[in-house]
Design a protein around this nucleic acid. Sequence first.
DNA 1: ACCGCACCCTGAGCGC
DNA 2: TGCGCTCAGGGTGCGG
Length: 290
Amino acid sequence: MPELPEVEVCRRLLAPKLVGRRIASVRCGPPSYFFLTPPRRLEQSLVGEPVTALERQGKYLLMALGEGRRLLLHLGMTGQLYIAGARSPRLIRRVERERLAQGSAAVESDPHTHLMLEFEDGGPGLRFRDVRKFGKVRLLAAGESDSRLDKLGRDALSVDGELLFAASRGRKVPIKTLLLDQGVLAGVGNIYADEALFLAGIRPTRPARRVTREQCARLAEQVRRVLERSIETGGSSISDYIAPDGNDGQFQNERRVYAREGEACGTCASVIKRIVIATRSSHYCPRCQR
DNA sequence: ACCGCACCCTGAGCGC
DNA sequence: TGCGCTCAGGGTGCGG
């Protein structure tokens, strides 16, 4: 489940491989929920475009093209953005993994790869694969905006306690729900919300308005720390996520609570609990988090 | 304004 | 062995 660190790792690894190249051809999968811009239009409009930069806003990637045009990309839950030729078991459907293991021949064309870009220099292209199609791709004209981007709050890497404190006043929702609100903080998802709350010693169910100024400061610091640490380790590869080179991230090995229900807390050895908050599974240590 | 919830999608894992 | 059910959750949109 790609959150800010996974998207940022993608950006850092892809930028040097894409910026300065010019798109030669585009192939798309069939129209679907995934395409905000119809695939036929992408196939026509992207040809000849130079890639001039790769930027990130929250969990969105923006590929800057010629004359102010931009390609908006979102990885959703299962999105994989990678350089053609990268290898990873996560890129192969299970039926085909089994067929390969039995020594059978080539892998069939993959129905989950929705966007393929090739470049004029003839080097390896870009692939966007997304099993569940919760990802998004949209071509933005020069000066055109996207309501999703307009609604984003402060980038989570630069959050401070005062911002959290101000945003949480008068809010009855659990503090975790506030962390997940992209309009307040852009980039935090389920994994890092749970991890930051653990590191700050705050129970995820605590009503936002009852989190003190001091706790907000601690929480903001831990949000930044956990995101930065995850970026350093290449992000979390828990279900589908891979880096653009096909490698797994390593942050899942440093999780303290996420998906550790029933295990012993690394700090106090209490049993990690799992509850549901706003339809998201949430994990915390009942002793370390009050 | 705020908040809870249904929905979009597919594959893994489980019980029978 | 295989079928059908539930769950996973980022983001949008709707109803109360």
